[in-house]
Amino acid sequence: MADILSIEHLNVALKKSPSRLLVKNTSFKLASGKTTCIVGESGSGKSLTALTIMGLLSNQLIATGRVLFNGVDLTTLDNRGMQKIRGAQIGMIFQEPMTSLNPVLTIGFQIGEVLTAHQALKGNALKASVARLLTQVGIPETRNSSYPDELSGGQRQRVMVAMSIACEPALLIADEPTTALDVTVQAQILTLLDELKSRMNMAMLFITHDFGVVSDIADDVVVMFRGEIVEAGPKEQVLGNPQHPYTKALLDCVPDVAGKKELNPIDYAWLNHHELSNSGASS
């Protein structure tokens, strides 16, 4: 299967101190119809990686390396070129649906905006498309004149999903899209995303820190630690038979619902020592 996205030797650093890399020599690939989860703790570089792909990196930061999307290196595009791709061929969903939506515009307008910008839809065609999208994400189309504050957190995230898939993107990037939601709502949104992914044959890059979510939706898993990929591979392999000591340690911290497992916090001193003495080739 052809890779829709290929990240090659990506480095991200502060402009002020370019020698200290926040994302270090990161490479991975993503195929159509597949979901890759990036997992890691805060500060591991997972969100920076996503922002770099979307070309939304702060101007304090500088990225080197290649981000090949459909064969085009996105890092070489200017703002205008990137705007054509963002929202059209690459959809995005962020963690906090309330801050990502404009509170003074109706949700119908905000979903329609995407279609107007990228496909120049107008009038009845636009209305019909917005209604179809709302139905697709499970919101009654009569709600299209509602404002974000009239919706629940789960519904707002559904609106975000509708906006992100409006132009049928080839790649969907979701940065902790269910972290702020209740578990039952989270389960609904995950199912929705999974269905849409299969139906539209999208590639999905899903950033999360929740291993439960990973095991539910991922095909492949990328584990990041201190800006580097420490382990990557099919879900069954990474979760079932982790090779890197950090992956093992991180999995040992996750409480299981059966309550059988002893929690075992990461011993960073041990990990540092282990990393230095073994430098990658773990037991």
Binding site: H209, L250, D252, C253, V254, P255, L263, P265, I266
Partner: peptide, 11 residues
Amino acid sequence: LDVSVQAQILL
């Protein structure tokens, strides 16, 4: 909190 920190605090 991150899961690793969460585990520390729970213990």
